[in-house]
């Protein structure tokens, strides 16, 4: 092989390697969950669960029972209350809900509203049985339209499935929503 050809081969190698290094997906995108997009109002199927939104509305304040005491929470934004019905498929499963806002920001379920008997983060979903649960988010009102609910099995969501469901209808805005047990 001539000196020129060898040089060309090395250069081609460098270009190829550089291209690979710069286009390689980073850790976060390599290990993100597999997303299933669900049409509004339909049932979303994940690897370990299936879920459907049954109702959603906005409230300025939330009232709930906290160990026998009535608590009322207000917010600088609004509360988005999403009620859903979910079941496990392969095994008893717990779920994590996140609201993906219209701006792309991610809102976790508000820990200011503790609902041990109906809150989604406290429930176990059993295979073959649908159970109701509620997810309460605290966010600016303009994050709701154009946003989606994301559901994942609790724990490490990397390389697991995530279901994203947009709202079909948003109920009328309420001043105070009472969430019972």
């Amino acid at each position: 092989m001539s000196r020129g050809a060898a040089l060309a081969a090395v250069l081609a190698g460098v270009v190829l390697l550089g291209g690979m290094m710069n286009t390689k997906p980073d850790y976060n995108s390599t290990f993100q969950p597999f997303v299933t997009n669900t049409n509004p109002g339909e049932e979303g199927m994940g690897r370990l669960f299936t879920a459907r939104i049954t109702e959603a509305h906005i409230a300025s304040q939330i009232e709930f029972d906290h160990w026998g005491e009535q608590l009322r929470r207000d917010s600088a934004g609004v509360f988005l209350i999403v009620r859903l019905s979910a079941s496990g498929t392969a095994r008893s499963t717990r779920l994590t809900a996140i609201w993906l806002g219209a701006s792309g920001r991610q809102y976790s379920v508000s820990s200011r509203v503790e609902l041990p008997s109906s809150g989604i983060e406290y429930k176990w979903f059993q295979p073959g049985l649908f159970q109701r649960a509620v997810a309460v988010f605290e966010l600016p009102e303009d994050e709701i339209k154009g946003g989606r609910l994301a559901l994942m099995a609790a724990g490490d969501a990397r390389l697991d499935s995530a279901v994203q469901i947009p709202l079909q209808t948003l109920g009328p805005k309420q001043d105070v929503t009472r969430i019972g047990p």
Partner: peptide
């Protein structure tokens, strides 16, 4: 082979 875990 579906799995149910005890209630906690």
């Amino acid at each position: 082979n579906r799995v149910w875990l005890p209630l906690h």
